[in-house]
């Protein structure tokens, strides 16, 4: 889980080009730059490390022939820069290479799993985002009362738990010991089947991700809302006789949402990382499970492709959060 709640987006609030469109273009360019550097990092970490990746992949018992074959498959015989160039060219054109373990094109191998993961993340997001905003805002309104203090303790405890602990606990509770076989503890959704047709299998993985993300966003939302409720303009709204409901809906909420967008983005992005563990817990056939499997089997093309994919998701989500923040914050909007 991430705590970069600094509120201010990472970059670009001192723009020179005018207008929201200009801002988006600049942030996109910056995002592309970040992705370019990320690609260097990924490539360096997986392929250009000292030592022989082929031997690392095949292990000590590899025969010289199989090593030679693998080196050729990975283009290891060519200069590093050429290897990188080819790899990037492949990324851009969608040719992600061939999976060493599955022995099929990476894009084919990942396609169905990507759909599965996207659906899991989507389901978790549409539940956890409104839920966390509601819990946070309500706790702020009921500050120091029973709801607030119990929500505070509960979110604190849940936020501290690693998600595999949450996931396995849910399995223990709902699939094995206490309510045996109430819910499936394993989500056997084969790649290619449509996950939305098997909602029962989705329940526990989704719940795990929701529990992993909601407490943190709720806590940020609460803090942000309390700050706004203590602000002078909210006091002023009360002093000019605005009814309490209007004070909350019209004066407080819009101002409290700005910083929360950043956190939502970080947590959506976090969901993209959290699926790695959660999919493994539930044997869910998605990119997370694929990544874990690729790491264990040292399937480098798949690792590279997934690393780039998840990094791209991060960059896009941060961009969206910055834009959303600007849209709800007039002060920032006109400064563009």
């Amino acid at each position: 889980m991430d705590s970069a709640q600094s509120g201010s987006p990472s970059a670009g609030f001192h723009p020179r080009l005018g207008g929201l469109a200009g801002f988006i273009v600049r942030r996109l360019l910056l995002g592309l730059l970040v992705l370019a550097i990320v690609s260097v990092v990924v490539f360096a970490a997986t392929q250009a490390l000292p030592g022989d990746p082929a031997r690392a992949i095949l292990g000590r018992s590899a025969t010289p022939d199989s090593l030679k074959a693998l080196r050729e498959q990975l283009n290891l015989n060519r200069p590093v820069l050429t290897q990188y160039g080819d790899w990037v060219k492949g990324l851009v054109t969608g040719n992600l290479g061939t999976s060493l373990a599955a022995r099929e094109p990476v894009s084919t191998y990942l396609h169905d799993r990507l759909v599965n993961s996207a659906f899991l993340v989507f389901l978790s997001a549409i539940i956890s985002i409104p839920l966390s905003i509601a819990i946070g805002a309500y706790a702020a309104l009921k500050r120091d009362r029973l709801f607030d203090s119990s929500a505070s303790i509960l979110t604190l405890l849940l936020a501290a738990l690693p998600e595999f602990v949450v996931g396995v606990t849910l399995v223990v509770l709902f699939a094995t010991t206490i309510f045996p076989h109430l819910l499936p503890g394993v989500s056997n959704i084969a790649p290619g089947t449509e996950p939305w047709t098997q909602l029962k299998e989705m329940i526990l993985p989704t719940l795990t991700l929701v529990i992993a993300v909601t407490p943190y966003v709720a806590r940020i939302m609460r803090a942000s809302m309390i700050e706004v409720l203590e602000s002078e303009y909210v006091e002023m709204a009360r002093l000019k006789g605005v009814p309490e409901r209007e004070v909350v809906v019209r004066h407080a909420l819009p101002n409290a949402l700005g910083p929360t967008f950043q956190v939502i983005a970080i947590n959506l992005a976090y969901l993209a990382g959290g699926v790695i563990v959660v999919e493994y817990v539930f044997n869910y056939a998605g990119i997370g499970g694929a990544l874990q499997n690729a790491v264990i089997t040292r399937d480098l093309p798949v690792v590279q492709a997934l690393a780039m994919l998840i990094a791209a998701v991060y960059v896009v989500l941060n961009l969206l959060a910055d834009v959303a923040t600007i849209l709800v914050t007039p002060r920032l909007r006109t400064r563009l």
Partner: peptide
């Protein structure tokens, strides 16, 4: 500056 709602 702080008593007027910045979002309205």
């Amino acid at each position: 500056a702080s008593a007027l709602n910045p979002a309205l």
